[in-house]
Design a protein around this nucleic acid. Structure first.
Lengths: 209, 209
DNA sequence: AGCTCCATGTAAGTCGTTACATGATTCA
DNA sequence: TGAATCATGTAACGACTTACATGGAGCT
């Protein structure tokens, strides 16, 4: 249900068409909850049928056939958003394909394990940069969404609105930092194993027998 | 496909019945990839139909009706396992319901935000303890699975087998540690906001208007 | 004339969840 | 006799993915 509540939260900042919403989504929530545009459109229709958002069909261009739909948060949606933020949800079980693989790297060669760790490191380095750039945008209050939120919120809420977002991104940045440091630790391990083994081109524990 | 490969990796340590496998799963892989027993049984049947595992039906107890099925890794499964460990998979997009909520804590009261963070802290503290206990078991080479693996593996692979698992658990432990520290940071933020606001029982940014 | 962006979806399929269903064995 | 554990599933549903489909608008 995270997608649902993310959409409600985005619309709380003001009405948006499906497409605009999807684009704002990609530049904000997508960092913590990825979704395809096709899924966003589907969920918006569902939210509409539940009366949590209302849609306003608008003509698009000059032709009479093409339309776009502007969505706005409905009272039921606002109530659901408030309920959800207050609710303490059970934590979702950990589930990470990489961690299951790193558990069993002995089934491949040290060379390949090293390649895995280098890819891991590069990925998180990149992710960290993106998080950091976005966090700075928020700190500068320099995104469309943040500006809209602050414009319609009372002055005394501005600090909390940005602080919670920055807090969240600090968590993500820290997580990315830890992944990079951990990859380095893993690379160190592989090098030690390589010295002990003398070579690194064969599976440490061969599977075909 | 992580469940699939985790099951193959478990069976590589030796044959197991579905039930035994599910129990070993809960005590090992489940830390990084949760699955229900019902799903494990289903996946084992699928793996059998793909010839990646073979099943040996055994009578159970004295009656003729009750049976259990012992699974073992088949050559196709071993090949698939080797292929998967070497493969560098695209990283899955980040997706965490808590992070989407922490982005929008302004829609609830400071009291409730504090309760959320306390629950978060308690959860990760507990998770960290479990990870640490398990990591120590592995370091002592004191689990059924590790003993089986080491027993059938050549001596020169023992170090890598345990080291990769410990490396993985260090990542998990570090992650849990970071979550706890971050919750404390969040609690500090909430206290500062409370001092500024004077009270904490009302939504910082009310949604009903 | 063709490319990029705007704009909205459908369809099929996979993975996972939740709840249910059934029956045997072991031990207090 | 009843509880815990052993043992194996099915059914319905929900969330998400991948691929496909369609067409307008604006610019070069």
């Amino acid at each position: 249900m995270s997608l649902r509540h993310a959409l409600l939260a985005l619309l709380e900042a003001g009405p948006l068409t499906g497409y605009e919403l999807a684009k704002q989504f990609d530049k904000s929530v997508d960092y913590v909850w990825h979704a395809q545009h096709s899924q966003i459109y589907t969920e918006l229709r569902k939210l509409e049928s539940l009366h949590m958002v209302s849609a306003d069909e608008q003509p698009r261009g000059s032709s009479a056939t093409a339309v776009k739909r502007a969505y706005r948060l409905a009272p039921d949606g606002a109530a659901e958003l408030a309920r959800w933020v207050a609710e303490i949800e059970p934590k979702v079980p950990h589930r990470d394909p990489w961690h299951v693989k790193s558990l069993y790297l002995e089934y491949t060669s040290l060379d390949q394990a090293r390649a895995q760790l280098l890819a891991h490191r590069a990925h998180w380095q990149q992710v960290r940069d993106r998080y950091e750039a976005h966090a700075q945008q928020i700190a500068r209050r320099d995104t469309v969404l943040i500006r809209r939120r602050l414009a319609k919120a009372p002055e005394d809420a501005h600090e909390a609105i940005t602080a919670y977002k920055l807090l969240t991104y600090r968590s993500l940045i820290e997580h990315a930092r830890v992944e990079v440091a951990w990859a380095d630790e893993g690379l160190g391990l592989v090098e030690r194993l390589r010295i002990a083994a003398g070579r690194g081109d064969r599976p440490v524990l061969p599977l075909s027998r």
